[in-house]
Amino acid sequence: MSLTHRQIHRDVAYFYVGLILAFSFSGIILNHRQSWYPTEYAYESEEVTLKIPKGELTEEKVRNLVAPFKLEYESHRLRGNNLRVDFTGNSIMELDTKTGEGVLEARRTVPFLGHTIKLHKSTDTAWIWYSDIFGAAMILIAITGMMIPMGKNGFNKRGWKLMLVGLIFPLLFLFIL
């Protein structure tokens, strides 16, 4: 029995429908991460006021600053007057270094959306191989979709025109914008 392009297209697309949806959602979210990034939400929040030490905020100074909170320090980042301290276990503290005022938040990953973003950004070797196979499957889906005979609206009639228009946008963004 030989498989037709329609059967290959259908079966590969069915197999990958979950990953197509997950990557589509997370891709849209990552495109808008500057304004909306729902990987985490705060479920507990506490306003804090700390005495910020003078001079450069070294790791040692930041560790000493947050030590009374009994949380395991992970890292910190200073942008302008905003100090963000990350703790193990998804807790963060954001402080204004001029006033010492800020907030300590315990966070959780947003179900589904936060997890799909983790998949999109994963560097796990097995996941990368699976994603590469998925990429090849998407190429197969695209090619077999073009080869499905569709009568007067098939690839040979108008499909190739739509494909060319669809290629213009990525090429514009890749080479011009």
Rank of each mutant, 00 (worst) to 15 (best):
E47G: 10
T125V: 14
E72P: 01
A106L: 09
I20R: 02
W36C: 06
L164M: 15
H5E: 02
L167M: 15
I20M: 12
T109K: 08
L30A: 10
R77C: 10
A13D: 01
N81A: 07
N31M: 11
A136I: 15
F134I: 06
E74R: 11
L50V: 00
G27V: 07
P111Y: 00
S2T: 13
A67T: 07
P149A: 09
F169Q: 11
V85F: 05
K121F: 06
S2I: 11
A126N: 04
G18A: 14
K98T: 10
V12H: 04
H5F: 13
L177I: 15
V62Y: 01
M146N: 10
I148M: 12
T99Q: 08
I28M: 07
S24A: 15
G135C: 14
K161L: 15
I128D: 08
F112Q: 11
E72H: 11
N82L: 12
T39K: 11
G102Q: 12
G27P: 02
I139R: 03
V17G: 08
G114Y: 01
G102Y: 05
E40M: 06
E56A: 05
S26I: 11
F175P: 02
T97D: 06
I128C: 02
F25G: 07
R63L: 03
S24R: 05
E74L: 12
L113Q: 04
S45A: 11
T4R: 01
V103Y: 07
E94D: 10
F25V: 15
G55P: 00
L3F: 10
W36F: 15
D11N: 11
G102S: 09
N153K: 12
L162I: 14
S26Q: 06
T123A: 14
E47L: 11
E60Q: 14
V12D: 04
Y14E: 09
T123S: 11
N81I: 07
S35K: 10
E44M: 08
Q34W: 04
P68R: 04
E40Q: 13
K118H: 13
L104I: 05
S91E: 14
V110Y: 02
V48G: 00
A137N: 13
I52H: 00
W127I: 12
K152C: 05
M146D: 08
M150A: 12
E44D: 14
W127G: 05
N82R: 15
Y37W: 10
F173E: 09
F87R: 06
G80I: 07
F15Q: 06
Y37D: 06
I141F: 03
F155T: 12
M150I: 04
L57I: 00
L3E: 07
R33D: 09
E56L: 03
I139N: 04
M163Y: 09
L78V: 08
I117R: 07
F112L: 15
W129I: 15
K152V: 13
